[in-house]
Design a binder for these strands. Structure first.
Lengths: 168, 168
DNA sequence: GCAACCAGTTGCAATTTGCAATCAGATCGG
DNA sequence: CCGATCTGATTGCAAATTGCAACTGGTTGC
């Protein structure tokens, strides 16, 4: 049985998520649709070490933010899914992106998705969360894909950036 | 010159705030009106160690989230103030409180303020941020004190809790 | 059968954390 | 003026965490 520093909701949230990597892993599963160990290991720009990734995945599963299941048709592979509590981190991640966009040297291309979600407001967050529930919890889908819209905006920004860098 | 893991706004935010203590310090300055080293050291329930507090204060000043100035009339004492970027963390902290309130074993009394801010929505956050600007940046005040309302609700919850525990 | 791929594990050095004790200067009470 | 207390820290040390690189035991595709 674990003990907590205090009963403060902010402090308790920090005890689960207050480190440099946990939210990066959740971000990649959430926005990057990475569901396997290898995807998460090699897919992110930040370059997480394999032991740290293994530890964080275990910790997040224990904390009830992720579930791990076997991949049918690939015996050794595990699939990680977001749980409802993890999906409810969307507003937190949006605010985090919003703050980072204004107060850190974030690149334009990587900020496009953050801005889109920020501008969309709670209604868009809600639609995104519904989409995540469909993907990760198997609930029925409805409405257009927010994820696809984010991805499209991101790729468009990348294309503009590269054409601006190398104009022909 | 420092280098960053990536240009992602979420990752960059985590590089500044992604640890167990930085946001606790900011929370205590913001909601607890603690402005001195000793207040911060002894005032919080979580029991931060003095060397960690000293390190975090230094780091937060370096990161531009706090300013440190001399206390007139108490030569040795320093006053720490929030900067505009730190004040803009209000929505992030509200979402953090909201998530913790729903998804961690937070106590009722300590969740009252979080709920009030959450229910108040962006308009209340904005009023609160204006109040913080008045307190920490010296800008002119207008409107009723959000901080006083939060504190009042908190103390009422404490009183109710203790009378429920020891009914006479 | 074998190379490539899978999810991790292991060993190790460096860093960070947490605790207790300590510090020098400032202020207070008498 | 003098000891006691308060100030914002610093120091030493043990334990835990982090990060890197190499490795493991098994699986899959050809």
């Amino acid at each position: 049985m674990k003990d907590f520093r205090s009963g403060c909701p902010i402090s308790l949230t920090l005890e689960v998520l207050g480190d440099r990597w946990s939210l990066i892993v959740i971000r990649d599963i959430m926005f990057g649709s990475r569901r396997h160990f290898r995807d998460l290991l090699t897919g992110s720009e930040e370059g997480i070490a394999s032991n740290i990734l293994a530890d964080r995945l275990k910790r997040l599963v224990d904390a009830g933010l992720l579930t791990q299941e076997a991949d049918p048709g690939h015996r050794q592979r595990s699939i990680y899914s977001l749980t409802e509590p993890a999906i409810e981190l969307v507003p937190l991640l949006v605010q985090m992106g919003a703050w980072g966009r204004r107060n850190t040297p974030a690149t334009k291309e990587l900020s496009v998705r953050a801005k889109l979600l920020e501008d969309g407001g709670p209604k868009l967050w809600s639609a995104f969360m519904d989409e995540l529930r469909a993907i990760h919890l198997g609930s029925p889908r409805n409405g257009p894909s927010v994820l696809a819209a984010l991805q499209h905006a991101f790729e468009k920004a990348i294309a503009e950036q590269s054409s601006a860098r190398k104009p022909r």
